[in-house]
């Protein structure tokens, strides 16, 4: 969790956020949507060096799906297509009823990891993902009961307070995803990344997620700070300015290449499990 970790060659965990639920093929035709498409993208991302696969389920029309059945179909396809990658389900769901938010945790087997939003997030002009403390606690309780490691989604600095609120209940080490972008996420800048890292809960491992054009520079900085990184079409539709990304694997390959140039080894799936206490 520091520059010393980078210097010591701590393995870098790469998460591939393959599809998401905000945008889809209407934004970039390369975004995988169906279980078969996501599974193919997952296999390519794993081959490229990703050890965690972050999943959202969709309907055939590309619209969001939250049911355990839809996540089951997706997770089964991904597990069949991949070697040994860690499956992480999203429990995010702007405007979706709280009762649906736990559905992605109820597959068989349960996902090894799941996202756990730490607080509110604005969307569009009128929507908010409220993520009340009551919902956060309920999701966390179900994760613990099912042996699922939470990835704490810290959308802004205040959400570090929320992570501290549940610090004692978290399995070691806490895994904190620092989110940078527009709206109610942290303003994307190197200084803010440093600030967020300095204020992490004691003992936490951290991941850097930055939207759009910030994905490349801030994840690279995360590599140097001893953190881990998430890339993929959920967060960034472009490889370069005006150049749509061709695939999730293309974005993972670039990160792996940069890590190699910087002398940071990329974690195998076994190493990722060890680092995260899975």
């Amino acid at each position: 969790m520091s520059y010393d970790d980078y210097r010591d060659g701590k393995p870098l965990i790469v998460t591939a956020a393959l599809t998401g639920g905000v945008h889809g093929k209407e934004a970039n035709p390369s975004v995988p949507e169906t279980p078969a498409e996501v599974a193919e993208a997952a296999a390519a991302a794993e081959e490229a060096g990703a050890s965690i696969l972050h999943l959202h389920a969709r309907e055939d029309s590309g619209e969001r799906a939250f049911s355990a059945e839809r996540f089951q179909e997706l997770a089964d396809a991904v597990r069949d297509a991949t070697d040994d990658a860690i499956v992480q389900h999203s429990t995010g769901g702007t405007a979706a009823p709280d009762a649906l938010r736990a559905e992605p945790l109820r597959t068989d087997p349960a996902p090894e990891m799941a996202s756990l939003d730490m607080g509110p997030l604005n969307r569009y002009r009128h929507l908010t993902s409220e993520n009340t403390r009551a919902l956060v606690d309920a999701l966390h309780e179900e994760m613990r009961a099912r042996g699922i490691k939470p990835e704490l989604e810290v959308f802004n600095g205040g959400h570090l307070n929320e992570a501290l609120r549940i610090r004692e209940e978290l399995a070691e080490p806490p895994y904190v995803n620092l989110v940078f972008g527009g709206g109610t996420t942290t303003v994307p800048s190197p200084r803010n990344l440093l600030h967020m890292v300095e204020n992490l809960p004691e003992g936490a491992e951290f991941n850097v997620l930055a939207f759009g054009p910030h994905q490349l520079p801030l994840t690279t900085m995360g590599i140097l700070l001893g953190g881990h990184v998430r890339v993929g079409l959920e967060d960034n539709l472009y490889y370069d300015q005006g150049q749509p990304a061709e695939s999730n694997a293309q974005l993972v390959e670039r990160t792996v290449r940069i890590a190699g140039e910087l002398g940071r080894p990329v974690a195998s799936t076994a190493e990722a499990r060890e680092l995260l206490g899975l």
């Binding site: 956020a17 998401g20 639920g21 905000v22 945008h23 999203s90 429990t91 995010g92 702007t94 996202s115 939003d117 997030l121 604005n122 969307r123 569009y124 002009r125 993902s129 989604e153 959308f155 995803n177 989110v179 972008g181 527009g182 709206g183 996420t185 997620l209 939207f211 759009g212 959920e234 967060d235 960034n236 539709l237």
Partner: peptide
């Protein structure tokens, strides 16, 4: 003032 939605993805 109008708001924009520049968050590409989510959690």
């Amino acid at each position: 003032a109008g708001t924009t939605d520049s968050e590409a993805g989510g959690s």
